[in-house]
Design a protein around this nucleic acid. Structure first.
Length: 436
RNA sequence: GUGAGCGUAGCUCAGAUGGUAGAGCACAGGAUUGUGGCUCCUGCGGUCGGGGGUUCGAUUCCCCUCGCUCACCCCA
């Protein structure tokens, strides 16, 4: 079949296909359950917000706002934007509704107009966790511990490294930036064009330059940790103390900065070397000034966001999930289906936990058994003219080495299945396979 | 936004210095009148990403375009 190119999916907006959704749900369920056990409440937010929200919160001079947002005028001429991240919207909702919940989370698609590559898409998915009104490092530590437990529970903790830094307050950064720029100028070397541009636009971003010469140079440059104000320093020390006690390992990375303007003090990132150029799987920090910036008063805040597509890629390297039914029902012959479905519905009522696929449509016994086999089902329930007349079913075992069949009356089938699955505990329908 | 490499069957890929295409897997049917997995046979399936140019003739050469992938950049 030929499909016009114009009705393909948009660039960077990919479908999540049936063979992938099982692992996505496993990931989502694991994370949301954990968030509940830590006392966090879910909030569901709109995908569209006024453009002004993002310009004011993220920072008008950032790359993200300047070039990567999906902005449109709605029918009234108002500028609206597909959310490029979740923090701003979450903060807006909390302020607007006067919420007192201080632990929130959300998840869903975000949109940034970028060139797609591994782990980076135009529509991508984030799970964000935000906390409010807690000024001390205890909550910073809790968030990191929660995040770490997520990795452990999903079995990807070995692939991730926690990078930690403090970028102090605004004063710290202004002082530091001035010193850094001066120091680089003093080196009297020619810079890479992008670094030259950053030096004037956003000097902090020079710190994550990929230019090896620059990286080497930065080794001797002044470090932001030496510029921290007393409060930021003790906050940072307290955080490290808690993490050390909790045996959560981290790497102090004085070059770790944020692309978004609203961060202060703690910044952290979990990175991996298993995903090509996109190493950050989750990132976060403290953003004490954002609420005031959005007219929400003096409410400090701390949070992080997970790049779910990247986490999925990581997870996929270790786990394979298959959704297989317990039973595939083979129905063949004229006018058998109505009888068969009535029987199967009774089984479903008696055993709601069993997953049962009914064969619909034509197909010989042979071809239906082939489908039963392909489905991965443990048992085939065969219902034909003979069975209907005799008020019984033929049960065929599909996963034993030499297949055996049983004839079971309609009246006893529910009990028979119950006994069978007790004797043969195949676990739940999700077969998890750990890959080496 | 910049650069590089790719687009041939549902999937993974072959192929021709220009003469309109193949394999494996998958799917359907059969060998086996009511029995899956192994084997064998047969069948279905392609405007060779799209448009234009050169040519008697383009899937092959040229130009444009769209899409994919990776990296820069940016970031989760």
């Amino acid at each position: 079949m030929h499909i016009e190119p114009s009705i393909h999916n948009l660039r960077g907006m990919s479908d999540i296909l049936p063979h992938e959704t099982q692992l996505w749900r496993y990931m989502d369920n694991t994370l949301s359950t954990l968030l509940t056990t830590y006392g966090y409440s879910e909030i569901r937010l709109p995908l569209l917000e006024s453009s002004a929200l993002f310009e004011r919160s993220i920072g008008a001079a950032t790359e993200l706002v300047e070039k990567e947002m999906y902005c449109f005028d709605d029918r009234n001429g108002m500028s609206i934007t597909l959310r490029p991240e979740g923090t701003a919207g979450c903060m807006r909702a909390r302020t607007q509704h006067g919420l007192h919940d201080n632990r929130l989370w959300y998840h869903g698609p975000m949109f940034r107009y970028e060139r797609p590559q591994q782990g980076r898409m135009r529509q991508f998915h984030q799970l964000g966790v935000e906390t409010f009104g807690m000024p001390d490092a205890d909550i910073d530590a809790e968030l990191i511990a929660l995040n770490y437990r997520m990795w452990q529970q999903l079995g990807v903790d070995a692939q991730l490294t926690l990078q930690l830094n403090s970028i102090g307050n605004q004063h710290t950064r202004e002082n530091y930036c001035a010193q850094l720029v001066q120091w680089i100028r003093d080196q009297a070397i020619t810079l890479h064009p992008t670094d030259e541009a950053r030096l004037t636009a956003n000097p902090l971003r020079i710190l994550d330059s990929k230019d090896t010469a620059m990286q080497k140079l930065l080794h001797d440059a002044p470090q932001i940790t030496d510029f921290l104000d007393d409060d930021s320093r003790s906050h940072f020390d307290q955080l490290r103390h808690i993490l050390d006690n909790a045996s959560i390992r981290y790497r102090i990375n004085p070059y770790l900065v944020r692309g978004l303007d609203y961060y202060n003090r703690t910044v952290f990132e979990w990175t991996t070397t298993h995903l090509g150029a996109q190493g950050a799987v989750s990132a976060g920090g403290r953003y004490d000034g954002l609420a005031a910036q959005l007219g929400g008063g003096d409410v400090c805040a701390c949070g992080f966001a997970i790049g779910l597509d990247r986490l999925y890629l990581l997870l996929k390297q270790h786990i394979e999930l298959h959704n297989v039914p317990h039973i595939y029902t083979v129905v063949f012959g004229d006018d058998i289906f109505a009888h068969a479905m009535a029987q199967i519905e009774q089984i479903r009522t008696a055993h709601p936990e069993l997953s049962i696929v009914m064969h619909c449509g034509d197909g010989s016994l042979k071809s239906q058994l082939k489908k039963a086999d392909k489905s991965g089902a443990i048992l085939a329930l065969i219902i034909g003219q003979n069975e209907m007349t005799a008020r019984e079913m033929t049960v065929r075992e599909l996963r034993t080495e030499k297949s055996t069949q049983h004839t079971v009356s309609d009246a006893h089938i529910a009990q028979w299945l119950n006994d069978y699955f007790i004797r043969h505990p195949f676990g739940n329908t999700i077969h998890k396979k750990l890959l080496q």
